[in-house]
Structure formats: structure tokens, C-alpha cells
Design a protein around this nucleic acid. Structure first.
Lengths: 335, 335
DNA sequence: TGTTACACTGAAAGTGCTTTCATTTTTTCT
DNA sequence: AGAAAAAATGAAAGCACTTTCAGTGTAACA
């Protein structure tokens, strides 16, 4: 007994009495084939249990229609929103989304070196990770269309924001609102080697502007806090229970601003009367809780990134782009 | 500038002055080719950075080490948390995560019919989507290891919760807290054909318990509201500006509970004194804003689902599992 | 020295699908 | 009814490899 071969497009063609081209069309662009024919074809397909083989398809198409995203803890709200932008664009363009969550340095290394080799990705988006020269080279040499978000590299497309300017905006706004005693809470020194340092820049801009305006900003008003809820709360608590507590707090991310708000609530501090809080990112949740914050267009960054890879996949000769996304201060109810 | 095409076996052949067949052999059965020739070939391969794509794919086909997740708007917090569970487990097991965001009926149909087919997925997790018999059959026939979350099917693994019981828990709790006038807000009738109806069940349980306890629950206290922020706010507003406004509101999802809270704030209603709010899901954010809610172990559901597919991939003979995850009422500060 | 065996190698035929191009059929318009 | 336009279809040419088949050239043997 011969092995029960899985049916191919040829079997379907024979059974339904049309050419393989028509089968292919019935499957991929149904509008280009007569409804009746299509029905016949579909019946044959069902009867045989036909299933187009991905490998063959990818070969013929010369693309897997799949793009990958490398990102640290992709479930943090800000990353999720970026991903949302990516996913929307990709889905519309009929591309698959493969996620590579990075939770360690080796992970990242491994991904970068093996991904292009696997050769089943058409493009790559790398979020919020610093990539080294050799890794970049490898990507480029393998012709992998790549775009970086929140990090830039001469030879790769990138989308960034001006974190320092963001810090300045916050400082200016707070000063203008009459605050004289300010505090800062954020993850200034991420431990990972591949981490980037946007928070540092935000603090820098913030600090400089305060200095320039002659507003005192003692070291003790700056609190390092990991992204985690517990850690942020602890830091917020320390900041808010100082003898001369600041009247306004700049949290380097919205999530951390929420922690501050929670602690303030526990301490019976009214916001914004007793304490002004301002965040950074403008995640969805910021609107829900009326948090004043700096919008960095997260969804948009993802959308743009996806559009850039897609564009480059279609036309590899496109010039490199380095996009600097604008920042806006969104006034809500916490300042 | 020509696009940096990735080299093919032809390029290698040209460079090393042999035929493509020899290249192929040098790679796949080295013993059948003259060592000198082989050396020449390998040099050319290295020089071009050639990577046999089909081979990689073929290997990948044996086991793609890749599992897919079909989910509606995967960026909604509750889905993200499930994904977080999935991703954690997968990443540890060295599996890739492919996300298929469903935004329309056809999408879903398309995925289910083409995914198993494509044969480049080892397993599949389908979240919060009702799948039809024929689709389930197709999955089973193609030997695709599948687990369903929030929906169950006799022949597929599934992880569900008891939504009705969740509704009952909320009602009991609210009654016990002395509330006599209750309201409900949720997306009772999702429009999509593939949608599931957990909210309906939650409402049912809620309603029944109230009836049994003799607490009146007029129709006008039930508001249908889409998941969207705007829609939820509108509904909350209507509910809260009725002449005899309820003293407690059950929002069928935390996100919608947040909308209720926002509207309450605008209306100058104090929570929980003027209005009690209780949600459902226990997303991360619930803790941040001290929302009382029903925990449905989102992360855990994802983790479990991933573990189930993985287990089944390793041992296809494993018995089907239908897991019913427990629900807990988490008391925080909004009731 | 003439055969034979053998190790290498290239041409070419698959592999299962997509897509272009040309052809046929149908529809629309005058 | 006839011409022009539009729709539907099939033939065939890829796609990037693998594998078979039929040679080559050379070493080994009688």
C-alpha cells in the first residue's frame, strides 16, 4: 500500500477539473475567480482535505510574510501599545507577527544571530534595546530589513524621541505652575547590558532646566526605582514621607506615576492640591486616571516602524530613515 | 544601490566554479564530494555568507518550535496578561510566539483554515473566541495541538472560568455590604459572530442572585456598553445621572470599571461612599487604582494553556483536559 | 595495455505553489 | 447584431533547492 500522500494543488485541480492556477487564485484572490468555479474548487479542497504547504508557498512567494519584533517584557503597557501599532499595520498588510520577548542578554544575542539565518522572517523591529555593532552588521549583511525603536544606529532605520527635551518640557511646565520643590522618580540605571537609558536623559533635561531657572533640586529628591510596582511604591513612599516633601513629582513613566498616586492616596495626600504628579508615555491608562503626562505617541511609533519595514521590504533601495517623533505635554488633572 | 539580496546556491556555484548540485552535496552529504572541491565551496559559502534557506525551513518543519496564539484585540489588558503567561512559559521552553490578532470574522476563519495547513506551527492557543464545529474538526484532523481559553469544545483542550458564578459572587458581596440599589454595565452583546458571551453569563448570575435575595433590579439599571472607553463612559454617565441612581455598580470588566470611576470623579461622586464600584478580571491596573474586583487569574490561564500545548506536543496521547479556573473576589477600596 | 570499478560531477527533472501573459468567454454598449 | 471592454481561465515560467541519472576522469586490476 502506497503511503497516503497529502494532497497537493494538483490533486485538487484534477478533481475539480480546472487548472492549478485557478486553485491558487481561488485561495489567494477569490474575487478573481467565478463564484461557481470557486465553489467547485472549495468542495474539492474540502473533500481532499487539501492544505497548501507553507514551505512551498514561501518559496514561490519569496517571502514568508512574517515580521519579527524583539522586545523586552513585551507586556509592559508602553510596549504593548507600540505592539498594537505594529500589529495593526501588519495585519492589514497580511503579515504575521512573531514576538521575541527578551529577558536576558544572551537571549537578545541569540535572537539576532539566529534570526536572519532562519531566513523565515522578512523584517525585524527591535524595540528599546541597544544593539551592538557586530549585531547590526550581521543584520545588514544578511539583508534583514530592520528598524529600531528608541535606539538609533547609523546604518539601520530608527525611530526615536528626544528624551532630554521631554524632561525639559516637564520642568518648564511644573515651574510655570508655580512649583518650587520638585522630585523625580524613575529607573535611571537599568541593569542589563542591552538596556537603553531614556530615563537618564529625561532626568538630565529635567535637571538642567531647573538649574537654568534657578530652582533648587537637591539630590535626595531624585529616587532610583525599578519599574516594578513594589519598588516604585517604596521609592514613592520614601520621597513623600521626607520632612520637606516635594510639591510635585515627575515619574519617568506613567506606570510609576500610578504607583506614586497610589501611595499618595494611602498617605491621604490630595492630588493635585497637596501633590502634583506628572508621568511620561501617555499610556491608555493615563487618560482613565486623568494623569497629566508627556505623550510619546506609542501606537504611532509602532505603526511607523511597521510601515518602514514594509516599505523597505517592497523596495530595498529606499533611503534610511531616522525619525524623531514629537513629544506633547498632555494636561489632565494631576498637576 | 542594488538591494542586498541574500545569496542563493547559484551565487555560491558561480563563485566557486562548480554546479549547484555540488554545492548542495557539499552541504548535505559531504562524503560524496572531493575534499578539495568541498573546501573551495565552503570558502565561497563563507565569503558570501550564504545560508541555505530551504534547508533551514525543512529543519524547521520537523518541528517549528513555534506556537501560535489567535486572539481578538490582543492589546486589551486582559488579553495581554494572558499572553504574558503564555510568553513566559514559551520563552523558557524555547518556543517562538506568533500572534494572530483577529479583528474580523473573516480573519478568524482565514486563520483557522490556513494555519494548521501551513504546517509551520506546532501548537495553537485560541483565546476568547467561539470556534465552530467545522473549524475544530479541521484543527483536529490536521493534528494541530490546540487549547482554547474562555471557550470549550469537547474534543479540544480548554481552560474556562465560571462566569455565572462570578456574577453571583459579586451580587452576594454587594448585598452583604448592604447595597439595595445595584447597577450593571457591560458588553452584553458582542456583535461579532465569533464572539463569546461571558458578560452575559456574568449578568445572569448577578441577576439571579439578586432575585433570589429579593433585591429589586430594574431593567433600566442594566446598561449595554461596548468595551471602548467612550462608549463605556457614556453608559456610565447615563447610569449615574438617573434620578434614583444605584449605590453600587458592577462593571463586567475592570477596564469598564475604570471608566465608571472616571465618570464618578467628574460627577463628584466619592468612591466608595457615594458609589461602590466593582469590576471583573483583576488586571494589573486594578491594584494600582485600588479597584475591588473578581480575579480570574489571567496570567495563570495563559501559563496553563502554554503548558498544555507543550505537554501535548511532547506526548500526543495525553488525555484531553478541561480546566475550570477558580474565581476570587479581591477586596480593595472601591466597595 | 586494456578493462573495470569507482569516486566525482553536472544537467536536468522534480518539489508545490504563485504569477504573468495570452487566450477564451462573457458582458456591455451602441 | 457587432464591436469593444471586462472577466475568467490555462499554460508556462519562475522560486531555491534536492535528487536522480548519466556521464567524466582516474586508479586499480588482470
Amino acid at each position: 500500500m502506497p503511503p497516503p500522500k497529502t494532497p497537493t494543488i494538483y490533486d485538487v485541480a484534477r478533481l475539480s477539473g480546472v487548472s492549478i492556477a485557478t486553485i491558487s487564485r481561488a485561495l489567494n484572490s477569490p474575487d478573481k475567480v467565478n463564484p461557481e468555479t470557486r465553489t467547485k474548487v472549495m468542495e474539492a479542497i474540502d473533500r481532499l482535505g487539501f492544505v497548501p504547504k507553507a514551505e512551498a508557498r514561501a518559496r514561490a512567494l519569496q517571502s514568508a510574510n512574517r515580521i519579527g519584533v524583539i522586545t523586552p517584557f513585551f507586556t509592559a503597557p508602553s510596549f504593548v501599545q507600540r505592539l498594537r501599532g505594529v500589529a495593526g499595520t501588519l495585519s492589514r498588510a497580511n503579515y504575521e507577527l512573531v514576538i521575541y520577548p527578551v529577558d536576558s542578554v544572551e537571549h537578545m544575542q541569540g535572537y539576532i544571530s539566529s534570526i536572519p539565518i532562519m531566513g523565515n522572517l522578512d523584517g525585524l523591529i527591535i524595540m528599546s534595546l541597544a544593539i551592538e555593532k557586530t549585531d547590526a552588521r550581521r543584520l545588514i549583511e544578511n539583508g534583514m530589513q530592520t528598524v529600531l525603536i528608541e535606539f538609533s544606529h547609523e546604518e539601520l532605520n530608527s525611530i526615536i524621541i528626544n528624551d532630554e527635551q521631554g524632561g525639559r518640557m516637564v520642568a518648564e511646565y511644573l515651574i510655570q505652575k508655580g512649583h518650587k520643590s520638585l522630585g523625580f522618580l524613575g529607573d535611571i540605571e537599568p541593569p542589563e547590558r542591552y538596556a537603553i537609558h531614556p530615563v537618564k536623559s529625561r532626568l538630565e533635561g529635567f535637571k538642567k532646566t531647573l538649574e537654568e531657572a534657578g530652582v533648587s533640586f537637591p539630590k535626595k529628591n531624585i529616587k532610583q526605582a525599578l519599574y516594578s510596582q513594589e519598588n516604585s511604591r517604596q521609592a514613592a513612599y520614601e520621597l513623600l514621607s521626607m520632612s520637606s516633601r516635594p510639591t510635585a513629582l515627575f515619574a519617568a513613566s506613567d506606570i510609576q506615576a500610578l504607583s506614586v498616586m497610589k501611595v499618595a492616596r494611602q498617605l491621604n495626600l490630595r492630588i493635585p492640591d497637596d501633590l502634583a504628579v506628572i508621568g511620561f508615555d501617555d499610556i491608555d491608562m493615563a487618560d482613565y486616571v486623568d494623569l497629566t503626562t508627556v505623550r510619546q505617541h506609542l501606537d504611532e511609533s509602532g505603526r511607523l516602524a511597521a510601515e518602514m519595514v514594509l516599505a523597505r521590504i517592497r523596495d530595498g533601495s529606499r533611503a534610511l530613515q531616522h525619525i524623531n517623533l514629537p513629544l506633547n505635554l498632555v494636561e489632565r488633572a494631576t498637576v
